[in-house]
Amino acid sequence: MAAAVEIEGLTKSYGSSDGEVRAVDWLSFRVEQGEVFGFLGPNGAGKTTTVQILMQVIFPTSGSARLLGKPLGDLESRSQIGYLPELCQFHSHLRADEFLDFHGRLYGMPAGARRKRIDEVLELVGLSENRKSRIRTFSKGMMQRIGIGQAIINNPRLLFLDEPASALDPMGRRDMRDLLMSLKDRGTTVFMNSHLLSEVEMTCARVGIMNRGKLVQVSDLKSMIKPGHTVEIRAAGITDRVMEQIRDLAKRVQQDDGCLMVTVDKEELLSHLARMIMESGANLMEFTPRQMPLEEAFLQLIQESDA
């Protein structure tokens, strides 16, 4: 089966007074069909530029890409793709149902299918009660919802979402996660640009990280969130002397509400730490190794790539 997204040496350069600026620099990777793929990076990393090239909003300086096995711009494959742009701007004089109807027409959907799908989509994005409201009256969150609506009106096989949760409140974010999961269950490939790492952590199986136009890493989320060298300790009766010993052993110690977060350099030191607390006579109630959260892994990768 062809990859959902296949990028080969994609480059986008802009001329400036300081010379050439490479917004995207020789990008190559694949996203398989059925994946929920998170595309991460700090502001200005080139994530949006990459998606805009894939959607032919802008054109690459060099390199090539294929979506659903077809070259960029192929209209047949584009009829199976949905796209939610960052900072949604829509034709605000339209009502919600008119807006979805117009986009359904642009996908070439027949009238009957369009009517049925508009009802479904409005329900899915939580705007059924606002179907007759003009988009200009919508809040930011509602704009985001109707934007998602136009992106899924065609039941896409491949969905590009650029910062889909940025304007949503916590309820909206939960709805968005549920929607993504239901799309995933139906086999839709989701390519999600986001700087909300917690959202990515909850929804994506694989992530790609970009920095300064270059791809830093593409890997499974599980392998990225490795067990770290940090433990959460709850113990009663830790004396000042033992606390001193822990500080000597640890790289970092944080004390919070009776709980100690201790980070050491090497894994072997964790067992030494546990033994030391128990031998001191303190009552060790909890000794839980913590996973390195995505945020930490992300920051570490970005710092390494900057260096």
Partner: peptide, 14 residues
């Protein structure tokens, strides 16, 4: 300028 063209050119129309 408004950015509304983006949702049009990304549909299956040339």
């Amino acid at each position: 300028e408004r950015g509304t063209i983006v949702t049009l050119v990304t549909k299956p129309i040339s």
